[in-house]
């Protein structure tokens, strides 16, 4: 059996913007991944989903300015639950100067507006070590 990459995608917190996360989710699906789309969820619920769905990757969409608080919280909670191998990606409207801060706190990669879809797909595929 072919090993499908499982991606949990969520809109972070109460962020209402949906177009980006829909678009990325569909491109990931078309790239052969299994995307578990959660809609709006808070870090605790996202981590719960990552556990139960055996996710390889968590994708967080944020355009509302909560990236610095809620993003790293997902990483922390994942570690607490023993899911160190799960990579957390973020996308949306995130000021470039915040990207190093997020990466310092364990976010694997951040994709801003205008990122070509191929870059996102390749970034996710490459991040997953098949075990």
């Amino acid at each position: 059996m072919e090993r499908k990459i499982r991606v949990v995608m969520a809109k972070l917190g109460l962020d209402i913007h949906w177009r980006g996360v829909y678009l990325v989710s569909q491109f990931l699906k078309d790239a052969g991944m299994e995307v578990i789309y959660l809609g709006n969820k808070f870090p605790e619920q996202i981590v719960e989903a990552a556990i139960e769905e055996d996710a390889d990757v968590v994708g967080l969409s944020t355009l509302g300015g909560n990236h610095l608080t809620l993003g790293p919280k997902v990483v922390t909670l994942l570690k607490e639950k023993g899911l160190d191998k799960v990579k957390v990606f973020m996308g949306g409207v995130i000021p470039p100067k915040h990207i190093p801060l997020l990466k310092q706190q364990g976010i694997y990669e951040v994709y801003g507006p205008d990122t070509p879809m191929d870059v996102i797909i390749k970034g996710i595929s490459d991040s997953v070590t098949v075990h």
């Binding site: 499908k4 699906k29 790239a31 052969g32 995307v35 789309y37």
Partner: peptide
């Protein structure tokens, strides 16, 4: 593609 979008959650 063999991919899927699982939205029941």
């Amino acid at each position: 593609s063999g991919g899927a979008l699982l939205g029941d959650r």
